[in-house]
Design a protein around this nucleic acid. Structure first.
Lengths: 336, 336
DNA sequence: TTGAAAGCGCTAACAT
DNA sequence: ATGTTAGCGCTTTCAA
């Protein structure tokens, strides 16, 4: 079932069918109807591969989404599609697992779909200049930036929160309320990614006040809730004097609150909890989680804006930090 | 940057490059190395479209995932990939929004990638026979089945839970504990989808005992937590005599519990809550949610199994109901 | 073991 | 307004 069959069935040439399918204006109404009828009857569906193979250049931006079931990326994605549509761009998206290589997937997408640019939704913080060269269209890192690699800033754009500064702020929020023994729950201390950056912010915020105690750093080894639950239990059991916890992600913080509850500690009376993310779920815990919320719509719009600018002018690469919004729940209290 | 450039750079023909890239055995070691070196240096990435355009038939199964950020589908997907790999099949996946047409996306994928079969991860419950014909390879519906359409059972396979029976069971779980005034929170009563099926199970379970009161059916209009929160508040305010709630999805149940809490009702002492889904998050609420848990791995494995069977024998279409597992949290108590 | 050439399904430039 | 035709980048015969 190809365009050829449709042409035959409707008694016109394949180029006419192509024109009808692509909404070209120079087709008579009679022919258009004939063709559409044949398309319907034959259940014809164009072959996307053939189509993109032959298309020289399209106004298309690719998006590589890293992490299959990430609801935050889902919201960002929805907004990216809207913003791109408004600017007259198509979106070609592909989704990869957390263990796959987003640059490889991106390069592949660029080739296949003749993209004008690429947005990476989540990825490594440590690209080498070499790595980046594999993508031969301008690209924008969304929700992360190249804190640990040797990319020149002119080689890419990025839209992200300032992980260091936001972690500093979260920690400060706790010290400002009189907390002195403040623990942190993170994935791995030196992961060359958000854990490491946020840990630095936490450490610096406490060090300045002479409150830093590295024994209060709990590593989970993964981003799973189960791991966060166990790590929190261990941390609190070993350091019962802790009165506040900074957890690097909302989902992990929810697990941490459960751990505290199961240890007989009330949140926030016995132990406060703050996190960074702002997912929907953490508004519905009891108490609601106090968290620094990343705005998906803002990040999406800025990413598309950066993409369009740099498509127009390859020198226009920029790096923006998006501010989080403090979403106060009921999980933080004054220290007694 | 095409296969042609690689050929030129390494001084061989394009067919030789193709052979190297595809791991064909009849290439000398010297040539293989030369080609690989050129590939590295040029950062060559094959064009997927061209590749799939020319490939006659591949051992590939397509998966259309409906709903971008659905963590349940993410777990199912991971297991599908494993199971398919074990059977020597590739997976081509595509992801669509909840408003897009999974059959269209599927048909397109089939054409583009010359698939042997298609797995639909989430979709409408009301395909017409006409609809199904648009897919010209065998397909398996995973997590849903055609309860409201006129598809012949020989036209497709399905792996799903029995929404009606599971809802019946959930409701019965509540009546068995002495509850008489039992509300339900669902999306739309006649959505031709899970809400409708689960509502029937709920109704029949109560009707048999003379406990059915249609005033206790709360429609949210969407699957969002915010809508579930509001609907629950309204329902409980209007019917304060309610002592138990069946909510059709875990995420909505979490919002419902928050609504109860905000109304000053304790769960489970004042009002019990049960749901269907079994997402990770609902283990970490306080109290943990009692829910009928759908097993993603089982559904994935059965879907792949069904797919392989029906690829081998087109007559082998089958319809399986997967049983949920009761995951008892602390959200249900005996009625006082 | 290697190369030449056909052709996958489609779009677009060029003819008519 | 419609048809003819040349590729897009690749895999795969077929020949050497």
């Amino acid at each position: 079932m190809t365009i050829r069959d449709v042409a035959k069935s409707s008694g016109v040439s394949i180029s006419t069918v192509s024109r009808v399918l692509n909404g070209h204006p120079d087709v008579s109404e009679a022919v258009r109807e004939k063709v559409m009828k044949a398309v319907e009857e034959l259940h014809y569906v164009p072959n996307d591969s053939a189509r993109s193979l032959v298309q020289a250049q399209t106004d298309t931006i690719g998006v590589v989404i890293r992490g299959i079931g990430n609801p935050f990326f889902a919201s960002v994605m929805a907004e990216i599609e809207k913003a791109a549509a408004k600017a007259g761009y198509e979106i070609a998206r592909t989704q990869i697992g957390a263990e796959e290589d987003e640059l490889l997937a991106g390069a592949s997408l660029v080739k296949s779909r003749r993209l004008k640019g690429l947005i990476l939704l989540g990825g490594r913080f440590d690209y080498s200049a070499e790595d980046a060269q594999r993508i031969d269209v301008p690209f924008v890192c969304c929700t992360f930036t190249n804190s640990f690699g040797d990319l020149a800033t002119e080689q890419y754009s990025s839209i992200s929160i300032n992980d260091y500064a936001e972690a500093y702020r979260a920690t400060q929020y706790l010290t400002a309320r009189g907390h002195q023994r403040i623990g942190i729950v993170l994935e791995r201390r030196e992961d060359h990614s958000i854990s490491e950056l946020r840990c630095r912010g936490y450490c610096d915020a406490l060090r300045g006040k002479g409150l830093l105690d590295e024994a209060l750093i709990a590593e989970t080894g993964s981003f799973s809730m189960a791991a966060a639950y166990e790590a929190t239990k261990k941390l609190i059991t070993e350091h019962p004097e802790i009165t506040a916890l900074f957890v690097i992600a909302d989902s992990m913080a929810i697990a941490a609150m459960k751990a505290l509850y199961d240890l007989g500690r009330r949140v926030p009376e016995d132990c406060s909890v703050i996190a960074i993310d702002g997912i929907e779920m953490s508004e519905y815990t009891t108490p609601a989680l106090t968290t620094l919320s990343q705005p998906p719509e803002v990040m999406a719009r800025k990413a598309v804006k950066a993409m369009l600018d740099v498509i127009r002018d390859p020198e226009a690469h920029r790096h923006e930090w998006v501010k989080t919004t403090l979403r106060e729940g009921g999980s933080v209290a004054q220290a007694r």
